[in-house]
Write a protein that binds this DNA or RNA. Structure first.
Lengths: 275, 275
DNA sequence: GACTTTATGTGCGCTACCGTACCGACTGCG
DNA sequence: CGCAGTCGGTACGGTAGCGCACATAAAGTC
């Protein structure tokens, strides 16, 4: 695979993993666009005209309840793509995608993405088809883990998870976002975030001004975060969805060892016993 | 498409949607097996030797926390397949699949599934490839909605959702399961389930004996359930994942209308204002 | 029937988070 | 500068669900 062709593609991991041939076919049609904060990429039921490959922006997929209250399902950054429903076959999704951190993204006409996705090739490893499905599997894990986290972990821990996942999609250690918005993402009260942020700030892990949170001590966050963060991160690594790995046309087969079964025990209970 | 070939396939919806050609290739390798309650199909990290197409059983995908406490991510019945990671490319998943309602399933060697999935065909509509991806998109919605429900709805409503989703995968109105297990699925205390079941029972919607819940008034449950149930159900219908629709090689294109944006409002708040 | 095991019902104090209200402080704009 | 609008901090009572400890009851075993 030729490396030089990637120079102007920015840092979207899916695009970076394209083969030279795929790149040649797609690159003329990739448009770099700015996605401003709050921009809605799609609403529930909207058919997408473009797929988006974020490079520096972060997009949230969120379900909007009947009451109007939103809840974040997953976040997508330079590791992924907005428009999974295009190649998964549903055409639309019952959620909203909204930009929650300004930045760039490459966009590609839906039809072209689909065409490349459906391109019949003998060996699939390393193709866009493969990469997109693998990313989608990672997305499933992220969504599932959000669900688990919602149920079982304290707000402080959830906030840590959210901050760390966000940091991983950014180049700086600064999040430009209001506490109110974070509350919306996590589906909690704004005051709850204020309190949780306050704790982290007192512990010297954060510094925050209006609409801006600066992470001072990342390891500190990692100490306080629940297991959910690491589960998602590990799975993304395993699926070669992070920039740490550069999948080639002949990457390592995906497999891992087993895991021991545990006794049934509520998580809160376990946390009590630890504390 | 020939209808008669489906007679002995039972009622798995994915298998039912196979084209005649696909059926001819796969049917000799489909084995009908009994999946006993509690059977673990896979553990986190396990590579699957078979994919399973449930017909009368229900399998839960659940994440097992470090503490040992499980939490249901999604449930799979005659509408789906166990072994999504096979064709999504990850090989394994960081969760456990366990049978939570005895019954039958067809199993198919992993390699054969993959072979058929990767079969290069010009037109994709109606193929196994298509159906599997569409099912996976439905799965994503189910998982996402579970997440939302975990965060925002009362236990009573969540229980209704869980009961209704389960009923949709069964032929009878009887669930053979202990309250303890339901609690594990929903990630709550056993006593919480006892209380919620008690309410529904007093309302005359249920009847329950040891390890067995009989639903007497399904419409009653539907009145009490939160929006999450309908969202999942509607999405599955739209994706032609329910037996109501019989996708052919030229099914209707998938699209739908828009949805109005709402004011931000916490769901609890909304529920308060209604009550 | 006697005994064990497992499932369900109930009560009680506790706490994380909720809803509400209000106040101060920062920021952008004229 | 002054003002308006937004954002963040604090306080307070309320509650859904928690952990814990038992009591009861149904099914299985011998």
């Amino acid at each position: 695979m030729i490396e030089s062709h990637k120079l102007n593609l920015g840092q979207n991991h899916i695009l970076d993993s394209l083969s030279a041939a795929e790149y040649q076919r797609l690159s003329p049609h990739l448009e770099l666009v700015v996605l401003p904060l709050g921009e809605i990429i799609y609403e529930p039921g909207d058919e997408l005209r473009y797929a988006y490959f974020p490079t520096t922006c972060i997009v949230s997929m969120l379900y909007v309840m009947e009451s109007g209250a939103p809840a974040e399902i997953a976040m997508v950054g330079n590791d992924g793509i907005i428009g999974v429903s295009l190649f998964m076959g549903g055409g639309t999704m019952p959620n909203r995608a909204v930009v929650r951190s300004v930045g760039y993204a490459y966009r590609l006409r839906a039809q072209l993405l689909l065409q490349e996705f459906n391109r019949a090739g003998g060996v699939r490893n390393g193709t866009l088809h493969d990469m997109l499905l693998r990313y989608t599997q990672g997305l499933i894990t992220q969504i599932a883990q959000t669900s688990v986290c919602n149920r079982h972990h304290f707000l402080d821990q959830q906030l840590c998870r959210w901050l760390l996942l966000s940091l991983d999609l950014l180049t700086s250690n600064e999040l430009i976002i209001t506490q109110e918005l974070i509350a919306n993402m996590l589906g909690v009260r704004r005051e709850g975030i204020t309190e949780a942020v306050g704790k982290l700030q007192k512990a010297g892990l954060l510094e925050c001004r209006r609409g801006r949170i600066t992470v001072l001590d990342r390891p500190g966050l990692e100490e306080r975060v629940c297991e959910c963060y690491q589960v998602v991160k590990t799975e993304f690594d395993r699926l070669h969805l992070t920039s740490r790995y550069t999948p080639s046309t002949s990457y390592m087969p995906l497999h891992s060892g087993g895991l021991v079964r545990n006794e049934s025990l509520s998580s809160r209970q376990a946390q009590m016993k630890q504390g």
